[in-house]
Write a protein that binds this DNA or RNA. Structure first.
Lengths: 216, 216, 216, 216
DNA sequence: AATGAATGAGACTTCATTCAT
DNA sequence: AATGAATGAAGTCTCATTCAT
């Protein structure tokens, strides 16, 4: 009763998943060049040759893996506060919290590291990531900011054009975890609070509107 | 007629500098594993063997290069608004501007990328970078924040313990330049303004003090 | 149709044997440092990389090869005149003859040369050779000498403690074959006779016992 | 008043001597291939380039060194018991003692090792060594043996044609010192006695002449 | 004559990829 | 479909030799 493609440890797609997962671990740990196909195979519990039945080359395996692990995250990360009728501030709080939860604290940070490290050699991946993850996320933030400005919650400022800034502390936290956490650990919970605090405080309207004047 | 030890294109130290510069370029472009000693040599205008007269191995060359390019930056970057009697806000503005100028806009961002990419294999470099660059920078920011709080310029908040947040948008800008600038260029000048604007606005004291901690 | 693991030119063990044999030839001909893995591979009819599937490094290949060629010789060489009830003299004659046959005339002399040449860098091999070959051989000779003295066949002399001397002419013959045979060939048969003759004549008891110790 | 060729540390010949001595040590310790010109130069207290002012290549340096250190030994070693009117036995005793003293116990054994190890690649050296050292030594022994047979001191035997056998234990002792002395030290003095004892005993005439008969 | 920096051929070793079984 | 032995290109590092000073 076992379908056509079956054999041993699952369907072909399941097989490919196992390989991709093993590959992700190896790439994340060692980087593209230093990861060995042999180790990926061993980790996946198969032989080296089998890897090539599912992926044509190390480069394609790498690209496939990145793509495969980015997409599902997007689904979860976006559409956080969607559809609910919340204040702009409440929406932003949710987005930021989601960001820490889904990306900074998860193993997606290893994918981020891979993109930073190997992006130069895989520009399509960067483009893909930019289009599928970054742009979407930024759009969500921008819309919320605009809504807040329109409703009078937020003061009007250039920040609307630079939603990057809103997410920046979370990205930094991600890097910190990767690089310096061994030397000086970072309390993500409290950082997230300080982050939310200062950003929202910076956004809120006040009576007297400040003139920025970033001049020397 | 010029001193001892000369030959060809300069003193031994100049020669080492040339090699280090070439190595930095190659490492920055390709990463540690993919950079080839041969290419570094060619770029430095010397032969493969000569590299080994100045650096004992590829690993040591890498470490040496990173260190060599971090140290001089520190000198310049530290002591930004030192010694002058400025308001805390003015000092922060100067620090942030300096940050964009010295790090985000300079080739130090390639060093950062290398550290992110290869840090796992060179933990001493991470420790070194943390001690020499990050810690110092954070101390300068922390002190200024504290001064602002003491003088009443800034409201009191957890941010004093998380100076990371202050610098975060600049770090993000650096990453953006490395990764996505080709797809969606970033106007550093205006980003810096938006950054300064929101951060300082977020820090300033107001009449009604905000209650933070909108946590989970 | 033949078992598992087959491929090309035989079982893995046969393959390792072929490589070891090729390596022995190359090492014997050129010495450790001057032998090239590439040549060993070519001689074995395989590619360079394959050598490393069977032996982890040039050094280990060398050690393994030496060991591999010493052990089987031991089996054959020891137990020469064992178990038979012969006079001590007859036993010695057999041992000496065996010695010429198994060592001097065989390719074990190339192993000896390698040990002499490279022993400094491979002390474990020297220790191994001493323990497995030299010690055993010397014990066999010593026992026979002692038996001869006890039975009155041989006169009592310091030679019992220096069985080296008994074997010395054969060792010399081995060296000669390696070094000078091209210039002045050595007739092994007749040398062996002269050797046996003088040694046994030197050992035999006579009426008047000689006073040794003509020392300095 | 310093001649023409003088400078710094001695005449050119003295310089060459220093280099040759350093080279001998390095070659003896490491073998031809593993010895580095740089180390030889350092040991000689000069720079690498200078070696090439005195010797055209590593190979020629090696050959020169061997030759240079063999010749003076010959002068001393040969002509041991020459010219004196001694019995054949007394002459042999002197020759054997001289052999142990000049060769086995001296650093000439390192030269011997070099010849054994590298002889294959330097056949002229082997030929030279054979002609200048071995042949002469063997001639001296042969003549003494013949004298002893003629005078009735020694019994007539095939040994006259195999003077190698007479020297063999000393050669073996030399090898032993090189290879196994660390594991099982050899008392040269007592070995020399046992050697002399058995050889001379084997040579001496007796009443009943033995028939060798090396048969099965 | 002496130096020692520079060269570049050459050797070991790794590993992505292929392919016979 | 799966295996894993085999391949060989490529990369790091060494060191004999050269040569400008």
């Amino acid at each position: 009763m076992a379908g056509q493609g079956r054999r041993g440890r699952g369907t072909p797609e399941e097989r490919a998943d196992v390989i991709a997962a093993a590959a992700l671990s190896e790439f994340a740990e060692k980087g593209f060049a230093a990861a060995r196909i042999d180790d990926i195979a061993r980790r996946a519990g198969i032989s080296k040759g089998t890897v090539y039945l599912y992926f044509d080359s190390k480069e394609l395996l790498f690209e496939e893996v990145i793509r495969r692990y980015i997409v599902p995250r997007i689904e979860r990360a976006t559409g956080a506060g969607e559809g609910k009728s919340l204040t702009a501030e409440a929406t932003l709080r949710i987005i930021i919290r989601q960001f820490y939860r889904e990306i900074v604290g998860s193993d997606l940070r290893y994918i981020m590291r891979l993109l930073i490290a190997e992006g130069g050699r895989f520009p399509h991946l960067l483009r893909f990531y930019h289009a599928e993850v970054i742009s979407r996320g930024m759009k969500a933030v921008t819309e919320t900011l605009r809504r807040g400005v329109d409703s009078g919650e937020f003061r009007s400022s250039a920040i609307v054009e630079f939603p990057h800034v809103i997410a920046a502390p979370a990205v930094l936290a991600m890097l910190w975890k990767l690089l310096f956490d061994d030397f000086q650990p970072l309390d993500l919970e409290r950082l997230a609070e300080a982050h939310t605090d200062i950003i929202l405080n910076g956004l809120r309207s006040r009576r007297e509107d400040v003139q920025p004047g970033a001049g020397a």
